[in-house]
Design a protein around this nucleic acid. Structure first.
Lengths: 228, 228
DNA sequence: CAAAATCTTTATAAAATCTTTACACCCCTC
DNA sequence: GAGGGGTGTAAAGATTTTATAAAGATTTTG
């Protein structure tokens, strides 16, 4: 799960800063709270995918905060605490925490434990798809569908189409396409392009004589249009 | 979950004794293995509800054992290790471990972490089965059935098929398949792939000349299709 | 240790894809 | 309307990739 939302509840400003920077640079969305009260409010208004909770908050006992949170919150909670006593760890885990790290902690380990905790949560998510009306290009699965029928493309055809589709709306020059698909030694082989563009149009256009997706920009290159 | 079955894989006899006594007195069913080989065999024959794995086994690197286990095992795995380096911890967690405890550990904490790990599992499904119409691949039992008849596959054939099936719909490149099945030193041995794909098709396809499950993507790789 | 099973290697045919050629077309200018 | 640049298309080779069988080599099993 990428871009997961993480709520950090900790009263130490240095820790909050450190976590904000570390987590955001690992493409998590971070919200912070300084007190138990704030933390619980934010969690309720805007349920995150994971909570990092400091046990040593000033306004309320951490174990009690955890209990309140667990009354309704089912996603992972990771405890951070200066307390390393077994009693505290067992209590927190039995109150519903998924993990417990003693401060000072190593950021790499924290990140790995976050990934581990989030891993169990992923549901069948679909791949990112370039949608062009009657055409769907699934870059992860490497498939192209037209009106829900899978179209068989050769390696070169697919490479060309995926380049065009990823820069939807923009003109890609002959030079650029030749270099990216065939390699730097082929930038003068414009005929290759014509042949493969023609083959692509035959496969993906409803009427290859009146192309709607792959548009010729005479003298410059080709442009992919998504619109129906 | 009470009476959960726990498999302990550790070569130190004192640890095994300690865990057997501790866990059994907390009403878990315990099985023990002394080596990676034994551990993997027991896990496969008799899948436990949770595995406790020592990283420092004599016969095989612990990270490699974890990876093999995770190819099909979806329930919690807790790592025990004398290694406390961040590198080891991060690697183990990213290889699919749910938790990591450094030896010597406190039994109360271990018990709490076991309870925590089992807690998330209550509503988990049974054996993960990849269903492909006339084909059923049971990743936990390592069996493949076609029209309810069990098919005999060699270790390599099974590994290849299970990789393809786990990424249903996606193209897996030659490189990737060779690296995962044969190891990083074999990524140029495309002929191996062709031979084993042909053997697999002969076993699982209704008509090996017109494959419906294992599709060739010329110049790129192969793709597994589930739908009938 | 011998037999069986499996894996590796080689050889060859078939299929798929890429490259090249040839020519038609369009649009513009002269 | 002739000529020329840029483009589209079909189809014939050329090349690469794939499928398959089968012979050795190796490992596993009894």
């Amino acid at each position: 799960m990428n871009n997961a939302a993480i709520l950090v509840i900790d009263d130490e400003v240095q820790i909050r800063r450190l976590l904000e920077i570390t987590l955001e640079s690992n493409s998590f969305n971070v919200e912070s709270a300084e007190t138990a009260k704030d933390g619980l409010r934010i969690a309720a208004n805007h349920p995150p995918d994971l909570v990092i909770l400091d046990l040593g908050l000033p306004d309320e006992d951490g174990h009690s905060v955890l209990k309140k949170l667990r009354e309704w919150y089912t996603k992972p909670v990771i405890i951070l605490s200066v307390q390393s006593s077994e009693e505290n760890i067992v209590k927190a885990l039995d109150n519903g925490a998924n993990d417990y790290l003693v401060k000072p902690f190593r950021t790499g380990e924290l990140l790995a434990r976050i990934r581990s905790a989030l891993r169990g949560m992923v549901s069948e998510e679909n791949d990112p798809v370039v949608d062009a009306g009657d055409l769907q290009i699934d870059l992860a699965a490497r498939t192209v569908k037209k009106n829900n029928e899978t179209i068989k493309l050769t390696a070169t055809e697919y490479k060309l189409l995926s380049l065009l589709a990823q820069h939807e709306g923009k003109v890609l020059t002959h030079q650029y396409l030749l270099r990216e698909v065939w390699g730097p030694g082929y930038i003068s082989q414009s005929q290759y392009l014509r042949v493969f563009i023609a083959q692509l149009r035959k496969k993906i256009e409803t009427d290859a004589n009146r192309p709607e997706h792959i548009i010729t920009e005479s003298g410059v290159g080709y442009r992919f249009i998504a619109k129906e």
